[in-house]
Design a protein around this nucleic acid. Structure first.
Length: 423
RNA sequence: GCGAGUGUAGCUCAGUUGGUUAGAGCACUAGAUUGUGGUCCUAGGGGUCACCAGUUCGACUCUGGUUACUCGCCCCA
């Protein structure tokens, strides 16, 4: 097919049918769980000042440097379609003066479309959806563990059971800086053997070398200094407490010293939720603690922790069959034009009793109308003809039954609502 | 930004070393005739073979370019 304006813009897609049902189900489930944990919903604008993302995510990250949808508006202001949710939520906290104190955790959840100008592929779109949670104000290993438990609970509730929790710690800023110095020193020795990408990372974002999927890089990484030797005593104790608490919760996790994050604002506990079911093995969610994010954006110096789940990736893992609608759709059918008004009256009565129904009056003959009803997946027909009107009855036909099973049934018109409610 | 693969009917796809009028299944429309659809039968509609150029007597088929989609890499959720 040649290009036409009726196909969506590259990397964008229409959400409807089974996928829409999956989306709705995930949001509903997450909302329910979020209430239990004391989160309240927030919806921030899709567009923010470009600086909001530059300052929080980090200028050097790929997300900011090459994946953002950035435009000049008519006032010559640089604005950006949000590539993730956390930055906007932090900005909202500051601009609405939502009170955050060190011992009063503020818990917010959000969901909606995010935009990254990236090459589309399986489970990745330029407009995609995330569901995220932010817990701001208090810093404690217990809160970190609860946050991970929450992420895990949502996935389990939705029906993802083969999910693996990977955690790591990036420590306080000073610990991290020392560690980065150490790995730069280490990787510089092997610079010639590193992949081309990692050579660039060495200068731009050395931590990301640890995350490389290149075989050669992996071998070099296996001998690299580990962050645990560079964490301060309190950092280490904090991390150990997070792990112990998770164990107490009964949450299986694995410590991955090579786990790093793509956004610059993370510190301390970071985690990722991976799914490994053979056909697909990638992170469907991830997050971590951010000590300096709020103050970076001009807010109070308060720590927070959050995570986000990629909804398209999650939806991909859900079984289509469970999300196909299967209800008993009722169709009201007048036999001929003479009965249209009478049948329409019946149709309205049904609707006013909050029962879903269709009114099928277009079609040359009864045969045609039944065919239309059938194509609408209607299983129950209410036939109104001259005989029915005369006798004040309705003929009920079950399209999913055979003649032998009692396909047709005559019901008194006055009892029809009661009859339908018991189906 | 890099690599690979695909593009033929509404959908899923065939299409012989290049040769008349490009096919199948499903879907669609009608035959159905006065109150019953789904399965069987019959007929019918529907294609600039993604686009542009080149080679050739002749191109869906070969070559080059463009474009779109899909899948990887990078990156990320």
């Amino acid at each position: 097919m040649s290009k036409n304006i009726f196909s969506p813009v590259r990397g964008m897609k229409d959400l409807y049918g089974v996928d829409f049902n999956k989306y709705q189900y995930i949001i509903d489930t997450a909302m329910k769980i979020s209430k239990k944990y004391g989160y309240s919903p927030i919806e921030t604008p899709i567009v923010e000042h470009t600086e909001v993302f530059q300052r929080s995510i980090g200028d050097e990250t790929d997300v900011v440097s090459k994946e953002m949808y950035t435009f000049k508006d008519k006032g010559d202001e640089s604005i950006t379609l949000r590539p993730e949710g956390t930055a906007g939520v932090m900005r909202a906290i500051i601009s609405n003066n939502i009170i955050v104190s060190n011992n009063l955790p503020l818990k917010l959840m959000y969901y909606g479309p995010m935009f990254r100008y990236d090459r589309p592929q399986k489970g990745r779109y330029r407009q995609f959806h995330q569901l995220g949670f932010e817990n701001i104000g208090a810093k404690s290993p217990y809160i970190d563990a609860i946050n991970i438990a929450l992420a895990n609970e949502i996935l389990t509730a939705v029906g993802i059971f083969d999910c693996q929790v990977c955690i790591n710690s990036l420590g306080e800023q000073l610990s991290r800086e020392n560690y980065i110095k150490a790995i730069v020193k280490y990787f510089s020795i092997y610079e010639d053997k590193l992949s081309e990408e990692s050579k660039i990372r060495l200068k731009k974002n050395p931590l990301r070398i640890l995350d490389s999927k290149d075989q050669g890089d992996k071998e070099i990484c296996s001998m690299a200094p580990k962050i645990y030797d560079y964490l301060s005593k309190s950092d280490l104790k904090y991390f150990e407490c997070v792990c112990e608490t998770l164990s107490k919760y009964g949450i299986k996790y694995s410590i991955d010293n090579l786990l790093v994050r793509g956004l610059d604002y993370y510190s301390h506990t970071i985690f990722e939720l991976k799914v490994c079911n053979g056909q697909y093995k990638d992170a469907i969610g991830g997050g971590g603690r951010y000590d300096k994010l709020l103050s970076l954006l001009g807010g109070p110096d308060v720590s927070g922790i959050g995570f986000a789940i990629g909804l398209e990736r999650l939806m991909m893992l859900l079984n289509d069959k469970k999300f196909q609608p299967k209800e008993n759709i009722i169709s009201v059918i007048p036999v001929s034009e003479k009965e249209i008004d009478n049948a329409f009256e019946l149709y309205n009565t049904i609707l006013s009793n909050d029962i879903r129904a269709e009114f099928i009056h277009i079609g040359q003959n009864l045969s045609k109308k039944v065919e239309i009803a059938s194509k609408l997946n209607s299983t129950i027909l209410l036939i109104v003809g001259s005989d029915e009107i005369k006798n004040n009855t309705v003929t009920v036909t079950y399209l999913n039954k055979t003649e032998d099973e009692g396909r047709n049934k005559t019901v008194d018109r006055n009892n029809i609502i009661g009859f339908l409610k018991h189906i």
